[in-house]
Design a protein around this nucleic acid. Structure first.
Lengths: 242, 242
DNA sequence: TTGAGAACTTGATCAGGATCAAGGTTTGCC
DNA sequence: GGCAAACCTTGATCCTGATCAAGTTCTCAA
């Protein structure tokens, strides 16, 4: 809830992902966006919005992890998206949420009131273009996930998830990759369309087979990325690691 | 491949879905789009584009049915979208296809060369806005499908699919709903993340239980929409039937 | 009208993952 | 340091949907 650094530079975390667009924003535009933004922090487990709620803001993740999920009346649920720092939350042009957004760890968002935000973006075609691009990126990710949910085995699902985490969160320590899983086993099962028991068993199996090394329950080391790529079944070119 | 009706009105099937935008397009804009469009017909089973192909056009479906799909090297595949008349194909701002597009029945598309199309849309903010909207609609649909693929039973999947077909293709004949299924059992299985045998068995079960009446293999009658809604598990407000 | 191929159905069996049920570890708070 | 709650693992069993294997029904062209 603290207001920090209102200079144009701070737009590094504006809802339009940093590099791609801020390079094309004029100083005036950045200032305009800065005027209408505010930061807000949610504790782990907090609900950011519920499906059907009016959406009065758009936002980008500054730090922490959030999830998007849909659920059925009987309680079954499916995570439909994972939000990591720099990711965008919101639906320009829409006014109700169509999924639940939940903070998984402590979460800080950079909010923008929707109305003024839309007034700004309205006037700037390159921001509109960027919004199309963001939506198409998410669409691609969603469709990849459909392949995973519909056709992959439990082991492949776990491997694919690890691959995503490696791409976004992995650090190279010498020759090997390390990362901290952003989700509990329970949240992983919601994301992968599995049960927590299956997640646990498959993690154990991958460990047994030397695909990964576990330290505690969240710290993972990947000794051989190609091995993991194989296990994931397909998943395009994971070779392009950040 | 036949050129038809170049008057502004013919934009009824321009890649921007009819009602929502054409009402806001000026006659000049429509004419501009008309100049760069051409029609093309594909036989049933034909491939429109393959994943990875350069995408030199955008298009909208004039008649017929097409599918979007992704597949794994070992042949497993998952349909990630169903394209019916008025649906949009293409990725403004992207230049390679990220799924296969296949004609399921004889298919006629209204194509626009991408470069000139982008030149036109570039200059018109309301078209850009409409593109964001289209992308968000597809994203919502994709995420609904993720819930289906990850958490629904075979029977619920079939019921959900029928519901979608009813919404887009159903005709009310007196008090009951009729429709012609746009897909073979085989394509349905690809869409629902099932096998063809399971699709066949669950269709038989729904028929046995009086949820639907089959005439031949593609003609379906739904005697009670609420019954179908229940079977689909959740699926928001299917009450809003066209 | 007939025949071939595609599309669909039905049955028997199998297996991957769900479910049920303990028990073990971490984490954080007093 | 001790305790409770959350988180995770492991085992036994079950069940849904996959797989394998015939058949049957459409469709359409000769």
């Amino acid at each position: 809830m603290t207001q920090i650094d209102l200079s144009p530079k701070s737009c590094a975390n504006c809802p339009i992902r940093p590099r791609a667009i801020c390079s094309r924003c004029t100083a005036d535009e950045l200032l305009e966006l800065d005027k209408i933004k505010y930061y807000k922090t949610y504790p782990a487990g907090a609900s950011v919005v519920l499906m059907g709620d009016p959406m009065t803001f758009v936002a980008s993740v500054v730090s922490g992890v959030a999830t998007l999920s849909r659920s059925m009346i009987d309680g079954r649920m499916q995570m439909v998206g994972l939000l990591l720092p720099s990711d965008f939350i919101g639906r320009p042009g829409r006014d109700t949420a169509s999924y639940d957004v939940t903070a998984v760890s402590e979460l800080t968002l950079c909010h923008f009131h929707k109305k003024p935000f839309e007034k700004v973006t309205h006037a700037t075609p390159h921001v509109q273009e960027r919004l199309v691009e963001i939506a198409l990126d998410e669409l691609d990710a969603a469709r990849d996930w459909m392949l995973l949910l519909g056709r992959k085995t439990a082991r492949e699902k776990i491997a694919s998830f690890l691959l995503i985490c490696v791409r976004r969160l992995g650090r190279k320590e010498g020759e090997i990759l390390q990362l901290e899983l952003p989700l509990t086993r329970d949240a992983m099962s919601d994301y992968l369309g599995l049960t927590i028991e299956t997640v646990s068993r498959q993690m154990a199996a991958l460990k047994r087979d030397g695909v990964l090394v576990l330290e505690g329950t969240r710290k993972v080391t990947i000794p051989d990325l190609n091995r993991l790529l194989d296990e994931a079944g397909d998943d395009s070119d994971g070779a392009t690691l950040a």
